[in-house]
Write a protein that binds this DNA or RNA. Structure first.
Lengths: 354, 354
DNA sequence: ATGAAAGCGCTAACAT
DNA sequence: ATGTTAGCGCTTTCAT
């Protein structure tokens, strides 16, 4: 009777898995040889190679990851921490990350913190405990300390979209200022002057930069910024909804609004529809972030498109580079945005522009 | 000089982490005692307890997961395999899963297969190699073999939304047939007879069940099913778009369409808008799956809402139960859908119904 | 109540 | 070229 017969060992795992030992026994070689063959280290006679392969296949051998990880001191898992899993922008980013990491053999530990700094801290601690090989994240800013611990541990990291000052790591962002400036300049060129902005919290660089672009557009046109039309939400749908409500309650209503994120745009649209106002006749809208269904909105949405998937891909590539060479110099990638003119701004009456 | 001073060890990890040994040394106890204290096993004098806690805190000790996993023969990671990460329905499911698992201390290894059976197989193998403690998945149906291997390994599993026949596991689905029947009956009650359906591939139980509901509605009304108005897409936006195009090219156009998934609905809307037709005047639309922005679509969408997040939560709870007791009987949860009438079906002229 | 030591499965020195 | 063995960090007997 073969030695690999006694199988069960602990109650938790129903069946104990095959180990190198059993493969070695069956192939009539040492465990070292098995390891060498299976890791492709070379320097093994082809006859033995065959026997090892055959034995492994016959036993349906799968190396134990935990053991391998323990040995190696690292694993094949990359943590991805995002602020809001319901936000299509971050999903697209994750999509790009996944696309690149998957081909490199890495798995993706996804953590969401729902825009809550407390949960962010918890998730971060959990990711660190899990010992992820790398981390890609879009942070709020509160738990900078937790992020520093990651840096101190020497874990490769890349920040996407949102960045934290003082953290010396790779970043991938978009040119938020220029995107916002273009959007608002477009509205100004259409004759609008009372242009509101519904923005996220200024504690985030994305919101600050978009705010800067908004103001720059007025300065470029020699106009003053209508400070009473500036609103800050939380980058979520409800925030956009409420901000829009207060704008519509203004004595002198804005004639246009720049909504500085996808979910806030949707909230704002909801508020406008609820007030039975027509877009763009009563109020023009330009959003930030494109969405696959933007042409099916009421009306088709003019928006500043971010290359979300490419942001993810770029970050993943940077991370892989750093995983390979931890001491390479930090890089700061800034991708471009693109204004997609549809009909919510009033520049055209209908139909999608490709 | 304290014993925990010599830190660096291997090149890969910049700084070696603190281990039980160092904590034990600092606390002046054995590693066994440290382990006992930190795992809350009890039976340790309170004086020592304090010293261990203090030492651990002072050194900022984090147990090494890989080592713990190796010992335990399992980890704290649950694999989540979904067909399409860009599909908001699955994202909501993931959201519910995450909500429940997170509180139980599990992390979420997310894998997406983009509706490709090949990638599904690869991802499944990777998840198995990673040795996830459990698996929640929405499958296509091709690699049933790979799924069986999981079952054979004794890994707790739960299927969501899409199920594979012959797999003896927990499942969480919704009443697709009843949802579809209600939607189509509603259209019939509004006077429509030429009602098309844009469905997913019949290899999926979800599509089959929705097809059944569609046909049932006609039978209930004593009408015959308009077979020439049945289309099958791929449950994605492009599929919905093309199917709608062919429907609009029919000699006698349908007066209404039931789109059997969220992305296909968006594709269909796109096609209708491109043809400059009015909804619901020229053609009425009822979709499947609600979306946060459904009220901001052109026009507000009447749809069959699935409790997506609750599907995820339920599956996660089932998985936790099974993780705790692997031999509990299998359960099949079926959640209810709800028809949300807005204006795309023509029953009302506008505004959201709450 | 506490410590010593074995061992989870793997890989990489080190021997031969 | 191949085998022997130490040891990754942890938990858990088994002694004391």
């Amino acid at each position: 009777m073969p030695p690999g017969d006694r199988r069960r060992r602990r109650a938790s795992r129903r069946f104990a898995a095959i180990t190198v030992k059993e493969v070695a026994a069956r192939a009539g070689v040492s465990t070292a040889t098995v390891s060498r063959v299976l890791s492709g280290a070379g320097g093994v006679a082809s006859g033995l190679q065959r026997r090892v392969y055959d034995a492994a296949k016959a036993l349906n051998y799968r190396p134990n990851r935990a053991a391998r990880n323990l040995r190696a001191g690292s694993n094949q898992i990359v943590g991805v921490l995002i602020p809001d899993i319901e936000n299509p922008f971050f999903i697209s980013v994750v999509c790009g990350i996944e696309e690149v990491l998957q081909t490199a053999g890495y798995s993706l530990l996804l953590a969401n913190f729902n825009e809550s700094p407390e949960r962010e801290q918890v998730q971060l601690a959990s990711l660190r405990a899990e010992g992820v090989a790398g981390l890609i994240f879009a942070s709020s800013r509160k738990p900078a300390e937790e992020y520093k611990r990651f840096v101190d541990a020497g874990t490769p990291m890349a920040a996407v979209s949102r960045v934290i000052a003082g953290l010396n790591i790779d970043t991938v962002t978009v040119d938020n200022a220029e995107g916002a400036r273009t959007a608002v300049s477009h509205l100004i060129s259409l004759g609008h002057r009372r242009i509101a902005i519904i923005n996220g919290p200024l504690s985030l660089n994305t919101a600050r930069e978009r705010q800067g672009g908004y103001e720059q557009a007025f300065r470029d046109a020699g106009l003053s910024v209508p400070a009473e039309l500036v609103r800050y939400g939380d980058f979520r749908q409800a925030g956009g909804f409420h901000a829009m409500k207060t704008l519509l309650a203004e004595a002198e209503r804005p004639t246009a609004v720049f909504t500085a994120s996808n979910l806030m745009t949707l909230g704002a649209l909801e508020a406008i529809h609820e007030s039975n106002l027509e877009i763009p006749a009563d109020i023009a809208v330009v959003g930030f972030d494109d969405m696959p269904w933007a042409t099916s909105l009421r009306p088709p949405l003019t928006t500043v498109a971010q290359p979300a998937t490419e942001v993810g891909r770029t970050a993943a590539r940077m991370l892989l580079d750093r995983l390979y060479d931890p001491r390479r110099p930090q890089r700061q990638a800034v991708l471009n945005t693109r204004l997609i003119v549809r009909s919510s701004c009033g520049a055209r009456s209908g139909g999608a522009i490709v």
